[in-house]
Computed example of a mutant assay.
Amino acid sequence: MPSLAVLGMHRSYTSLAARWLASCGIDMGGSTLGVGIGNEHGHYEDVEFLTFHAKVLAAHTLPSNGMADWGARSFDPAAYRAMKIEGELAEEGRALLERKQKSNACFGWKEPRTCLFLPFYREALDPFALILFRPFEEVVSSLLERERRVHAETGHRGWRKAYYWATRSRSEAWFEQLRSDYLEAWIYYNQCLLDHIEASEPGRYMVHDLASMVANDGAILERLNQWGFDCEMQGLGALKGTTKTRELTGLSNDELGRAQHITQRFSELIGR
Rank of each mutant, 00 (worst) to 15 (best):
S180Q: 04
A17K: 05
R146S: 09
Q234D: 09
Y182P: 04
Q260Y: 00
G237H: 10
S212V: 05
R204Y: 06
N39R: 12
D254I: 10
T249F: 11
S64Q: 10
V150T: 13
M83S: 00
D69A: 06
E172K: 11
A90W: 05
H53D: 03
E255V: 03
D46A: 11
A259D: 02
M28V: 03
H53P: 03
R272D: 15
A185V: 07
T114E: 03
D254F: 11
E123I: 06
S74V: 08
F136S: 02
E91I: 11
E40Q: 10
E98M: 11
E153A: 12
N104T: 13
S141W: 06
A238N: 04
F229T: 07
T167W: 01
A68V: 15
H41W: 08
G250T: 13
A129S: 15
G29S: 01
E91P: 01
M28H: 02
R179N: 02
A82V: 03
V207W: 04
L178P: 00
L224P: 08
A72C: 15
Q234L: 09
S23I: 06
N225F: 12
M213F: 05
Y44S: 12
E247F: 14
I37N: 05
P127G: 11
C192G: 06
C192D: 02
S200R: 12
W109T: 10
V140S: 11
T114I: 05
S12E: 09
L33A: 13
N190D: 06
G257T: 08
R73V: 14
D27L: 01
W227M: 11
S142T: 15
A18W: 03
S200Q: 10
H60I: 03
Y13K: 02
R223L: 13
D76M: 10
E184W: 02
S12V: 04
W186G: 08
E48F: 11
G71P: 01
C115Y: 06
R81V: 07
L248S: 12
